[in-house]
Amino acid sequence: MNLEKRIANIFRMSDEVWQRHAHPGSVWSRTAALPLLVVAVWSRAWWGWWSLVPVAIALFWIWVNPRLFPKPASTNHWASKAVLGERVWSDRDAVPVPQHHRRVPHILNLISALGLPFLIWGLVAFHLWSVLLGVCLVNLGKFWFLDRMVWLYEDMKDATSEYRSWLY
């Protein structure tokens, strides 16, 4: 089982939750998750241990966000196709993806991961520029990854009847 499938299982991403997460509102509002988490962790400078409350709220937001929105009226949006592509990518062990899609998502996840040490160190040391660099790298990798997922979905939408049914 690949990492993305494991993460989807941890988040209990059922078919219904995936459909709800394909709502553009879910995708775009989820972009607030990292900044919310950063501010929540930084708030320990002002609130001490009470900062765990906003940290818990930010983590809850990450989990609940895909469940808050209804199934979209249409999935013919960039944001929706990004989520559909993530589903295809996480299912790549069962339905292989084309060769030209196999390497770049890993590289983009690596770019995001390279931002984490800067982000973590910046939050520990209250070093704003490190935090900003970390957030930029994480988001650069993530948004580029999402763009590749749109491309992946466009290439794979006719691979199975299930994938085809996701686009309406």
Rank of each mutant, 00 (worst) to 15 (best):
C136F: 14
E154N: 12
D155M: 00
L167K: 02
H101M: 12
W63V: 13
Q99W: 03
L52G: 07
D93C: 05
N76Q: 14
V97H: 08
F69E: 03
R6G: 10
D147I: 00
V41D: 01
S112E: 03
A94K: 15
I7C: 08
Q19L: 12
R30Y: 07
Y153F: 15
V97Q: 10
I7H: 07
L108R: 01
F69L: 08
P72H: 13
W47M: 14
S90Q: 14
G134R: 02
W129L: 13
H101T: 06
S80Y: 10
K81C: 02
E86Y: 06
R44Y: 08
T160M: 09
F145M: 08
S26Q: 01
V27K: 04
D91H: 14
W63H: 10
L137E: 01
V95N: 10
A113M: 09
P70M: 09
A40T: 02
H106L: 11
L68V: 09
V83L: 03
W129T: 11
I111Q: 07
R6W: 14
R103C: 00
A56W: 02
A33F: 07
A73K: 15
L114F: 12
A22M: 13
L119Y: 01
L3M: 12
T31I: 10
P70K: 05
A159R: 08
W151Y: 04
I7Y: 13
P24I: 08
W61F: 15
D15A: 11
E154K: 03
L128S: 09
K71I: 15
I10N: 10
W50C: 08
V138R: 00
A40E: 02
V83T: 12
I10L: 15
K71R: 15
A8S: 12
T160F: 07
I111P: 05
F143Q: 12
V131G: 06
L37C: 03
H21G: 00
A45T: 12
L146P: 00
N109H: 13
L132N: 03
I57G: 04
H127K: 08
I120P: 02
L132A: 12
P117G: 01
L68I: 10
L132Y: 01
A73F: 06
M1T: 11
R12F: 14
R103S: 09
I62H: 00
A113R: 01
L3Q: 06
V124Q: 05
K142L: 09
A159I: 03
K81Q: 15
W61G: 06
W129G: 10
G141P: 02
L128E: 11
L59A: 09
V104A: 13
